[in-house]
Write a protein that binds this DNA or RNA. Structure first.
Lengths: 186, 186
DNA sequence: GACGATACGGAACGCGCGCCCCGGTTGTCT
DNA sequence: AGACAACCGGGGCGCGCGTTCCGTATCGTC
């Protein structure tokens, strides 16, 4: 359990790898070759694998932070806005962030097929679920959807926004339309 | 321009390849290896390439038919139902078909990034566009979306349905929700 | 039946990528 | 400074897949 102290160069390289990985994953998502990350970090591929057992592990290490920050955002919104607005704003924010960060996009879309509800991966969904429940209790969101549906909706929103942006259309419209759809039917 | 008549075995093999490709693409989409198609057709990989210059060309040959049939369906719906219903039914039908056919799914989702508006690929979108325009004229669909948006919406619907079905949820709910969102705002 | 054209099959190639290995280097501790 | 462990780099392996090549089999024709 005790973290053995790393040698100075090892610690420096680890940081460089994380930094390069963040930039690379952010720009190209999981699709970026690991060698490319190593190159950008000024490091050999072997070095990357000494610090992270797998490409996926590196990816998770990078995404961990984003997820945590998003969960904090959700918390903040829940405390400062009315339930419907908080839910609305958070979904829009997640989509917006994902458009700027392919890593986030990939992480959100593959999230939870084989459900891994632990750690930060779980936190963001817990937070999102809390916002959803509150909005539903407030009558701002239709009652017949649950967190599972919400994941599908989020993936759908990402898909739609991606398509729309490739055509140079104004951003956020599709997300607004989808959010419209989540209101209780009149 | 004149089609040179194929040898008998060549014609037979071509048919077998198309048949196997239809089954394989339908089940696994573009992800199926070409060798697998050749194997299922009882044919060597070289034979496939003699009839189709590229895996993608084979894929298009297979999808051609589905697209044509869907375009016909659109036409039929346009003639037998009121505009709003026709539009609604067609979108639902396309999603439903795509859930049964990964090839259709792949074809619809990659459709039109580098727009290739010719042939059957174009026909289906023309037909869909006509349904959309009619529904909008009738006040059944909000006026501020166009064919380009519609493609995004369709991709989104496919994404959502896929997610939802992986969780064993009832089919079509997400599509209904999305269609709800396309109604004129009250 | 024989012969040229045509088509066949599947081994082989090129490529990209995740991951591992090992000879050399660098940091740390005495 | 010397010695030992820790760490580094990048070449190489294995794999999957799209595509090509060529020796061989089959078809159509006279």
């Amino acid at each position: 359990m005790a973290e053995k102290p790393l040698r100075a160069d090892a610690r420096r390289n680890r940081a460089r790898v994380l930094e390069a990985a963040e930039a690379a994953f952010s720009a190209e998502g999981m699709a970026v070759p690991l060698d490319e990350i190593a190159r950008r970090a000024g490091v050999g591929a072997g070095t990357v694998y000494r610090h992270f057992p797998t490409k996926e592990a590196l990816f998770e290490a990078v995404i961990h932070d984003r997820f945590r920050r998003l969960a904090e955002d959700a918390q903040a919104l829940a405390e400062t806005r009315r339930p419907g607005q908080a839910f609305h704003a958070f979904l829009a924010r997640v989509v917006e962030q994902a458009m700027l960060n392919k890593a986030l996009c990939d992480a959100l879309e593959t999230a939870g097929s084989p459900v891994k509800p632990q750690g930060v991966e779980g936190d963001i969904w817990d937070a999102f679920g809390a916002l959803l429940a509150a909005a539903q209790r407030d009558g701002a969101v239709r009652a017949d959807i649950d967190l599972f549906d919400l994941r599908a909706v989020l993936s759908g929103a990402l898909t739609m926004e991606r398509h729309v942006r490739e055509g140079g259309r104004p951003a956020g419209r599709m997300t607004e339309i989808l959010l419209d759809a989540l209101r209780p039917r009149s």
